[in-house]
Computed example of a mutant assay.
Amino acid sequence: MAETASTNADMKIRAQSGIAEGLWLRAERQSGGVGRLGRKWESPEGNLYCSTMVGCHPDDPAPSTLTFVAALAVHKAISAYLPHDDVRLKWPNDILASGMKICGILLERAGNAVIVGIGVNIAIAPQVEGRAVTSLHRERADINLGPAEFLDTLAQYFADTVEEWRRSGLAAILTAWQLNAHPVGTRLVTSDADGGRLDGEYAGLSDDGALRLRKADGAIIEIHAGDVHVG
């Protein structure tokens, strides 16, 4: 479609009508795109704005862990088009190219399904307050690469990773995620439940995907929600 308010909102409507997994919606532009924590997601033409749906089955891992599935799939797709390997995952679902944000992922529950919204900077790197951002073209991907071609690649990686999540379980997904993340010992900054600043070192993930942060006194705490900044 040429323009919509939000591909996630459109996919929610379709999910309620009982569509099967595998459908992707893509818009050239969004007038009401939203990122994590309700932030506005700038949506100029030339980038990828898309959503899909994953049904929740009784034997699946926790639906919230699809955030790691989505991040892995996007990481694979971005890496396939870049001439360098400086592409890293940052908890829980950020993808950094050359240390800069290149993607946004938003999961929303819709009944017995999870809507997965993905935005990837392909041609343009819109300004994000407090963040360094980049795009695939800026990172020297083929200048002819467009959103439709990228989505074809992403959709296949996403389907394969969802299948792995169901077949092998969350532990396999978290292992793969950590192999593509910043190394253990990386300095991170986040906040506690009261908004206070927390500094520490990345100490891996817990079995359920929480961020493990080693404080200066050696104590390790688990972070289940919040923004994380490297350095």
Rank of each mutant, 00 (worst) to 15 (best):
N8S: 13
A9N: 03
I13M: 12
S17Y: 02
E21I: 07
R26A: 13
Q30C: 07
V34F: 05
Y49P: 02
V54L: 10
G55W: 10
H57N: 12
D59C: 13
P61W: 09
A62V: 11
F68D: 03
A71C: 13
L72M: 09
H75Q: 11
H75G: 05
I78V: 15
R88W: 00
W91G: 02
D94Y: 05
G99A: 09
G99P: 06
K101W: 07
G104E: 06
A110M: 09
I115S: 01
I118W: 00
I122M: 05
A123F: 06
P126R: 12
R131K: 11
V133C: 08
S135V: 04
D142E: 11
L145E: 04
P147G: 11
F150N: 02
A155P: 00
A155L: 08
E163Q: 14
E163M: 12
E164K: 15
T175W: 09
W177T: 04
N180Q: 14
G185R: 12
T186I: 10
R187Y: 08
D194G: 14
G195V: 08
G195Y: 04
G196H: 12
R197A: 14
D199L: 15
Y202G: 03
A203Q: 06
D208F: 09
L211K: 04
R214C: 04
I220E: 13
G226P: 02
G231A: 15
